[in-house]
């Protein structure tokens, strides 16, 4: 049974208010049966230093990725992971994490590939929960194993591969990396190794909208009106547009994917998880460079 939605007025403005919860709502529902809270962080040790009581950890690096191929786990492995974490197909899953929910949004996006019905993000993530002095514990979560069906991953709807992006050229692309990564300047910085790519720059036609522009200082999402002014007004995207978002490995762009699809109601946004670590390393990919980002 899915849990009730958070009736918070800020959330009610969004296209899919049921996809976010506030810290207050989560605190009130922590003990509800049918809820599993998942912490997913960029820093994989952070959970061990203290987490929301009852929350389980999902490690993006070791648990969501296939150990051999650069891909996500398959249906069988995902089902095993869910059973082991105590998540059933009808469980309401609330994700939270560090860095304004980058990795939490990334985990949510990967869960979405498997079509898990009720996935929500904690607005403001770990930092907000801690800043409000809410309870944290180092006690390991002890959840009984659950049943989870083997459901095939659907890579067609919200995920883009390199070939898809090549076909997509000319349609809206959003590069959510930092301005220096976008322009290709990072390659030229003296004495610094380039982080994982042989070429710098961006996919031709991509607009630069660093992911953090969708977030407030406290890590919560900006209001619907602010997000519309940014993606609609400034960048010129419309909810009916076909959009591809990317970053370095697809984690920061999951945050933007979430903002566009869940908060603004875009229906055709795909995350290119190969992102710059594929595009900037692959042979003969078209690349654009410029000194300053256009926007």
């Amino acid at each position: 049974m899915a849990l009730p939605n958070d009736p918070d007025p800020k959330l009610a403005e969004y296209a899919h208010p049921e996809k976010l919860v506030t810290t207050g709502w989560l605190a009130d529902h922590l003990d509800d049966p049918g809820l599993v809270v998942v912490e997913s962080d960029e820093d994989i040790l952070l959970y061990e230093t203290g987490h929301i009581p009852g929350a389980v950890k999902v490690d993006w690096h070791t648990e969501l990725n296939d150990p051999i191929t650069r891909d996500y786990v398959d249906a069988e492995r995902f089902a095993q992971l869910m059973r082991q974490k105590g998540i059933g197909r009808d469980t309401t899953v609330v994700f939270y994490g560090d860095k304004s929910n980058w990795w939490a949004a990334y985990a949510l996006w990967v869960f979405s590939l498997f079509g898990h019905p009720d996935l929500r993000l904690l607005d403001g993530g770990r930092a907000k929960w801690e800043a409000e002095g809410r309870p944290m514990t180092t006690a390991a979560a002890d959840r009984p194993a659950a049943d989870y069906p083997v459901v095939e991953r659907d890579d067609t709807r919200i995920r883009a591969f390199r070939e898809d992006v090549l076909e997509h050229l000319g349609k809206p692309l959003v590069d959510v990396r930092s301005p220096d990564e976008y322009t290709g300047k990072l390659l030229h910085m003296a004495n610094y190794p380039q982080e994982g790519a042989l070429r710098g720059g961006h996919i031709p036609g991509a607009k630069s909208v660093p992911w953090a522009r969708a977030a407030n200082e406290d890590g919560t999402f900006k209001s619907r009106a602010e997000l519309e002014a940014l993606y609609g007004g400034e960048v010129g995207l419309a909810p009916s547009d076909e959009v591809v978002v990317y970053c370095r490995i697809g984690e920061r762009s999951s945050h933007t994917w979430f903002a566009l699809t869940q908060l603004l109601g875009f229906e055709r946004v795909r995350n290119y998880d190969g992102s710059w670590t594929e595009w900037g390393n692959a042979v003969r990919m078209p690349i654009e460079r410029e000194v300053e980002p256009a926007s």
Partner: peptide
């Protein structure tokens, strides 16, 4: 920072 235990490690 304390929020970066891996780096601290």
């Amino acid at each position: 920072p304390r929020e970066a235990p891996t780096t601290r490690g």
